[in-house]
Design a protein around this nucleic acid. Sequence first.
DNA 1: CTGAAAGCGCTTACAG
DNA 2: CTGAAAGCGCTTACAG
Lengths: 346, 346
Amino acid sequence: MKGVSIKDIAKQAGVSPTTVSFVLNGKAKEKRISEGVSKKILKLATKLKYKPNQLARGLRTGKTKTIGLIVEDIANHFFANVAKIVEEEADKYGYKVLYGSTEDNLQKAKGLLEVLEYRQVDGYIITPTVNLDKDIEALKHARKPMVLLDRYLPNIPTNYVMVNNFQGAYDAAEYLMQQGFEKIAVVTITSEQIQMKERLDGFLAAMKAHRSGFPRKMLKKLSFAATKEEAIEEIKAFITSIPNLDAIFFTTNYLGIYGIESVKDLGLQIGEDIAFISFDDHDLFRLYSPGITCVEQPIHDIARNVIQVLMNELNNNTNQINQVVLPATLVKRGSCSKRLSGKSAS
Amino acid sequence: MKGVSIKDIAKQAGVSPTTVSFVLNGKAKEKRISEGVSKKILKLATKLKYKPNQLARGLRTGKTKTIGLIVEDIANHFFANVAKIVEEEADKYGYKVLYGSTEDNLQKAKGLLEVLEYRQVDGYIITPTVNLDKDIEALKHARKPMVLLDRYLPNIPTNYVMVNNFQGAYDAAEYLMQQGFEKIAVVTITSEQIQMKERLDGFLAAMKAHRSGFPRKMLKKLSFAATKEEAIEEIKAFITSIPNLDAIFFTTNYLGIYGIESVKDLGLQIGEDIAFISFDDHDLFRLYSPGITCVEQPIHDIARNVIQVLMNELNNNTNQINQVVLPATLVKRGSCSKRLSGKSAS
DNA sequence: CTGAAAGCGCTTACAG
DNA sequence: CTGAAAGCGCTTACAG
């Protein structure tokens, strides 16, 4: 039950715990421990299956070799995939990951931050909620290694890794116009989340670049707190409120999923009666008939960059700020093939 | 930067660290600390925002207030959802969760177990791979609180929480027969995972109960290690190899997803040319046209029971074994409506 | 009713 | 080339 300690090895090797510690930490050369002693200790360590007690080490060094991962929702396809890669990559560096979901709730986010601080994680990967500025500022001030994920706080310069939301949405809108769609609507959420704003901005910029403008009534904002049923009702009402609507863009995957459900409920055919694009890819989008065109985020690259940036901080603790913005890819599928018939969607 | 310690409080309160520790651990009564001192310490603690150092406490008590969660794949819809609820529930008891994915690889599973032991987690939630028996046995022998998830090891009595795989698959097969389908095939994986075996057994039992038997050629086993492309090719070949096939059952969600893709590739219409059922629900199944009938696992109940059982172990460490088997629900959707036409599916 | 002291298992500045 | 000793921040058996 009890693990073997440095003392046990010291006793068996006939040396002091100090020497054992030096050798086991690879400081044999530096501390000029003799070859023989060094070898003997190493052999003993593997024989006894010595595992350093992380708690004791952490207490002494202040390092826990643990990182905290705060996402919006670990069950969401995007974040679940990020979590997987983050864990794999962190493992390579000897770090383990503690996680939690904010549900986009400020209080939950603060709570998670508090617990992780308390747990003395060495570094943080954070999907910030709106108004988390003060807490992030505090972390930054304490010089805690940290990298934001999926979004950033415009008023606080920090490390972050995210997709180019503006470009992704711009491409989507432009593509819809190239395909010849005339009445294009957009559905997003009310939240002030920066990545959502940028997606909307990108969409609107494309509309303005190619059209005379964008009427406010073609834009629908849903509350993040709305239940699925409420959201679907609102989307349905929105769609039917626009005569001759022929294309619609959803700014994130779960909205896109609600959108599919709404369109189905209305008895409309995606790709026939209405063109459809969503931000983020999903199994559903890939396999739906027709396939749903989407703006795909490079999840693997995002996760790998996050770890890269964090490890860099952890090991060098430079003051340099790393802000990584990765390109989004428009994945074209059947949902946006040009509608040839003249019939109205509503 | 430095946190406030018990010493700081002791100094300010003019008492010893011992007294502070007693009060902060709710042992004021038991240790007969006077009301006044007690109050003063508590007030000071909140004023100074005292947070006990978990490392120090852990080093002393041997408890880390951390649990290890080992799943097959944290990015999978089922496990991602379990992970979310596990984290939320664990949080209520003051526990944090360290996770990792086995990819159904024995070596990875062993590695995770080793790291978690090393990290001295207080309890384990494990989705065991095949042949993990010895390691689980060791954990059990060390009397580590532990509960298996999603599957169990037939040769080792342990706590576990899982769905009734046999019944779920039995219901699915029976339903297909009730709907009047004649040639029913099943696709599963080669792995000896017990839950997969039970699903297959349930399916076969239903076939035998209502039919003369089940020909081996109606059963397809895919390797877990197969790539998506390979799996789809195999499924396609399997489907075309069976003349007049009219229904097919997939024993887990990702196989079902591959199945949809395969059927689409073949130009067949689910619900028209072939009836389709999958184990596990998924957004895709719900929203596909037609909806895919599935055997739904009660994810929330599973996760909550897992934590319940684990907390029970953690706090009481009884020798009682808890084995929870929750009912699966057949969710009927359009993919299995009785085909009226007589045309062949192949 | 309260405190001095030991100890959990490490690391590291200091000394020789 | 190696070791004795202090200390990280707690908890708890023991003593008074």
